[in-house]
């Protein structure tokens, strides 16, 4: 569905000396600096796949998405979405993609939600019958009924986002780009939105490309993730795989009868660390370790020998911590880079 080969995008940025002098100087003479936002990436996404596209701020995520939607022309490389080159046939491409940008609204500000959808029906030339069916379905799944008569500007963020999502899927697009669809939302709304996305994918085979900083979104929606850093793809594969590759870090939380004078037992000193205690829960001790050094069972039994354990929970390796670790490595690279300069 999405085919990308050696895609690159360079921006020219005007460089300006600071202050008034610089501003005057830039009127006559400008120095340009080339920034490589995307450096030759390859993507191959099948129809009805749901892929998480993640990376730190400024890694090149939005630039890639803009090229996929046809808003940006790549500097070099090839893009094909559903067999169409987006930047050459922008309008044609537009009619079978959908998008949600968490930070911008696509609905029409002054008119009620229902009217917005009516307008979208005409914009995307959706047949009346299909429109009615789809809308009825969305209204049920996303609980939109009480919102339909309200102008968009009066909706709360969570309500608006539900409406935005319905708008993006209304014309049954083949590909949907979701850019931080759950930003700033409460857990209940997030859950509803995630289940809606999954449902759309199951029913219509919609291909979904999701960018987010919320790892819970990724873990619940996507089977596959692509991590981009500094304009290059640094990981492309299943979530399972990355967990086993990087996710050897575990955390176990212990609740002890008496934790006032807790010291890590001698036997664990080489393999594990105690995480700083949280203010509100002083009885909870969290121990982090790598499963390469010691098994969870071993650690628990050593702890039980030394202390009276009231309760314990084993935390699953979170993709979040993994990605943090990968970003961290990327960041270090950047720091070294700057030192060289």
């Amino acid at each position: 569905m999405i085919e990308v080969h050696n895609l690159a995008k360079h921006y020219k940025i005007a460089k300006r000396d600071p202050g008034l002098r610089g501003a005057v100087k830039s009127l006559f003479y400008r120095k340009y600096e080339t920034k490589e936002a995307v450096k030759g990436i390859n993507l191959h996404i099948e129809a009805s796949e749901m892929v998480g596209y993640i990376g730190a701020n400024g890694a090149g995520k939005s630039t890639t998405i803009k090229m996929l939607t046809g808003i940006l022309t790549p500097t070099s490389g090839e893009v094909k979405v559903n067999g169409i080159v987006p930047y050459e046939n922008r309008k044609q491409n537009a009619s079978h993609i959908g998008a949600v940008f968490g930070q911008r609204t696509q609905l029409f500000w002054d008119i009620p939600v229902r009217e917005s959808y009516e307008l979208l029906k005409h914009i995307y030339e959706i047949p009346q019958k299909q429109y009615e069916e789809t809308l009825a379905e969305f209204v049920e799944v996303l609980h939109l009924e009480p919102l339909l008569g309200i102008p968009v500007r009066q909706l709360s963020l969570g309500q608006k986002m539900r409406c935005e999502l319905a708008a993006a899927f209304l014309h049954r697009p083949k590909v949907v780009y979701l850019d931080e669809p759950t930003i700033g939302l409460d857990v209940a709304v997030k859950v509803r939105i995630r289940s809606f996305i999954k449902q759309m994918n199951a029913r219509y085979g919609t291909t979904v490309l999701l960018t987010t900083h919320d790892m819970q979104d990724i873990e619940e929606i996507c089977q596959r993730i692509i991590i981009i850093d500094d304009g290059s793809v640094i990981y492309d594969g299943s979530i399972q795989n990355i967990k086993s590759q990087f996710g050897d870090k575990r955390v176990i939380h212990f609740e002890l009868e008496n934790s006032d004078n807790f010291i890590l037992p001698q036997e664990l000193a080489h393999a594990a660390q105690v995480l700083p205690r949280e203010e509100e829960d002083l009885h909870k001790i969290s121990i982090t370790f790598s499963s390469r050094d010691i098994s969870g069972a071993e650690l628990i039994s050593i702890m039980m020998n030394h202390y009276t354990v009231a309760d314990l929970t084993i935390a699953d390796p979170k993709i979040e911590t993994i990605v943090e670790e990968i970003y961290g490595r990327g960041m270090k690279k950047e720091v070294q880079h700057e030192e060289v300069h």
Partner: peptide, 13 residues
Amino acid sequence: DGNVAIELMRPYH
């Protein structure tokens, strides 16, 4: 305000 980008993603002129 940059919303022109979103407008360009729509199938109209």
